[in-house]
């Protein structure tokens, strides 16, 4: 009889103590989870704030980049025209033959020294040098 009463009391105490212990543990864990989730909420709000700028800015960049990409062919077409107009155009190069020596009959100065001029018909005396009186 006494054993049954004691076992019943132990049974009830174990049930209550076990429930209290586990509820305390789960409660502390859930409190930590709630704190972390609040941090997550704040971080998500920060990310949303940061990301709100992206769409507008990227759309503007895409629009401007498209305009630039469309204008660049016109620009480099004009630049090519300038390059073609300003580049030096050399004239046609005349093809020259190889350099040859001035060969042929050369006039001898020995004949001139003695007053002989072949082909002139007569020998010419050289002009006497003026004598300087002593």
């Amino acid at each position: 009889m006494t054993t049954l009463i004691v076992l019943s009391v132990i049974d009830i105490v174990l049930l209550i103590a076990g429930l209290a212990f586990y509820l305390f543990v789960v409660g502390s864990q859930l409190t930590r989870v709630a704190t972390n989730l609040e941090e997550c909420n704040e971080i998500v709000a920060t990310v949303v704030t940061n990301a709100s700028v992206i769409e507008r800015g990227v759309e503007q960049i895409n629009h401007t980049g498209g305009v630039i990409a469309g204008a660049l062919p016109l620009l480099y077409g004009m630049a090519e025209g300038i390059v073609v107009g300003a580049t030096y155009q050399p004239g046609e190069v005349v093809e020259r033959g190889p350099a040859r020596p001035a060969s042929g009959r050369r006039r001898s100065r020995l004949h001139d020294g003695v007053g002989y001029a072949p082909g002139a018909g007569a020998a010419r005396r050289p002009e006497p040098e003026p004598q300087i009186p002593a």
Partner: peptide
Amino acid sequence: MIRDTLQQAASNTADTALIAETATRVE
């Protein structure tokens, strides 16, 4: 883990304010 990932995402998107500046420079 989710909190850490979100912190990395927040740090990755912290410089998105420069996109508007980039758009101005592209203009």
